[in-house]
Measured scan of single mutants.
Amino acid sequence: GQVNVNNTTYTFPTPKLAKEFAQKAAKKYNLTVHVSGNTVTVK
């Protein structure tokens, strides 16, 4: 799974890890998680 945070893309071996990372990043920066297919964007 891929996660985009502040124009930086992070790649994870599983969608589960990507989702967990996205949720932590969203909480940390007070942003929202947007899911589109296999790509998760935090903005």
Rank of each mutant, 00 (worst) to 15 (best):
G1P: 13
G1D: 11
G1E: 11
G1S: 12
G1Q: 11
G1L: 12
G1M: 13
Q2T: 12
Q2S: 12
Q2M: 12
Q2V: 12
Q2D: 11
Q2E: 10
V3F: 10
V3Q: 11
V3P: 12
V3T: 12
V3K: 07
N4P: 11
N4H: 13
N4Y: 06
N4W: 09
N4Q: 12
N4S: 12
V5M: 12
V5P: 11
V5Y: 12
V5E: 11
V5S: 12
V5K: 12
N6A: 12
N6P: 10
N6W: 15
N6V: 14
N6M: 14
N6L: 14
N6E: 10
N6S: 13
N7T: 15
N7E: 15
N7P: 10
N7I: 15
N7M: 15
N7Q: 15
N7A: 14
N7H: 15
T8R: 15
T8L: 12
T8M: 12
T8I: 14
T8Q: 09
T8K: 14
T9D: 03
T9R: 08
T9S: 08
T9A: 05
T9Q: 07
T9K: 08
T9N: 04
T9I: 13
Y10V: 03
Y10L: 06
Y10G: 00
Y10W: 09
Y10M: 04
Y10N: 01
T11L: 06
T11F: 09
T11A: 05
T11W: 13
T11H: 10
T11M: 06
T11Y: 13
T11K: 07
T11I: 13
F12W: 02
F12D: 00
F12L: 03
F12S: 01
F12Q: 01
F12H: 01
P13K: 13
P13S: 12
P13T: 08
P13D: 09
P13Y: 05
P13V: 06
T14I: 02
T14Y: 03
T14H: 04
T14L: 03
T14P: 01
T14F: 03
T14E: 03
T14S: 10
P15N: 11
P15G: 06
P15M: 11
P15W: 08
P15Q: 10
P15S: 11
K16T: 08
K16V: 06
K16R: 10
K16F: 08
K16A: 13
K16I: 08
K16G: 07
K16D: 10
K16W: 08
L17H: 07
L17P: 01
L17D: 07
A18R: 00
A18W: 02
A18V: 01
A18F: 02
A18N: 00
A18E: 00
A18M: 01
K19H: 11
K19M: 14
K19L: 13
K19G: 04
K19Q: 13
K19D: 05
K19T: 07
E20R: 14
E20F: 10
E20D: 07
E20V: 09
E20T: 06
E20A: 14
E20K: 13
F21M: 02
F21P: 00
F21Y: 05
F21G: 01
F21R: 01
F21L: 01
A22M: 03
A22H: 01
A22G: 04
A22T: 01
Q23D: 10
Q23E: 13
Q23P: 00
Q23L: 13
K24Q: 10
K24R: 14
K24S: 06
K24W: 15
K24A: 09
K24V: 11
A25G: 02
A25W: 15
A25P: 00
A25M: 15
A25Q: 06
A26Q: 10
A26M: 13
A26G: 05
A26I: 11
A26S: 09
K27F: 08
K27Q: 10
K27R: 10
K27A: 10
K27L: 11
K28S: 05
K28Y: 14
K28V: 10
K28M: 11
K28E: 09
Y29W: 13
N30P: 03
N30C: 07
N30G: 15
N30Q: 07
L31V: 12
L31N: 03
L31W: 13
L31K: 04
L31M: 08
L31Q: 05
L31H: 07
L31S: 04
L31F: 06
T32F: 06
T32Y: 06
T32L: 08
T32A: 08
T32I: 14
T32S: 09
V33A: 05
V33R: 00
H34N: 07
H34Q: 10
H34R: 07
H34T: 14
H34W: 14
H34G: 04
H34L: 13
V35N: 02
V35F: 03
V35C: 03
V35Y: 04
V35Q: 05
V35A: 03
V35K: 02
S36W: 09
S36P: 00
S36V: 13
S36F: 10
S36A: 09
G37V: 03
G37T: 02
G37K: 04
G37W: 04
G37I: 03
N38Y: 04
N38T: 08
N38I: 06
N38D: 03
N38V: 09
N38G: 03
N38M: 06
T39L: 07
T39Q: 08
T39I: 10
T39E: 05
T39G: 02
T39P: 00
T39Y: 05
T39F: 05
V40P: 00
V40E: 00
V40M: 02
V40S: 01
T41G: 02
T41K: 04
T41H: 06
T41A: 04
T41F: 08
T41L: 06
V42G: 01
V42N: 00
V42K: 01
V42F: 09
V42E: 00
V42D: 00
V42L: 09
V42S: 01
V42A: 02
V42P: 01
K43I: 15
K43F: 15
K43L: 15
K43D: 07
K43M: 15
K43Q: 14
K43G: 07
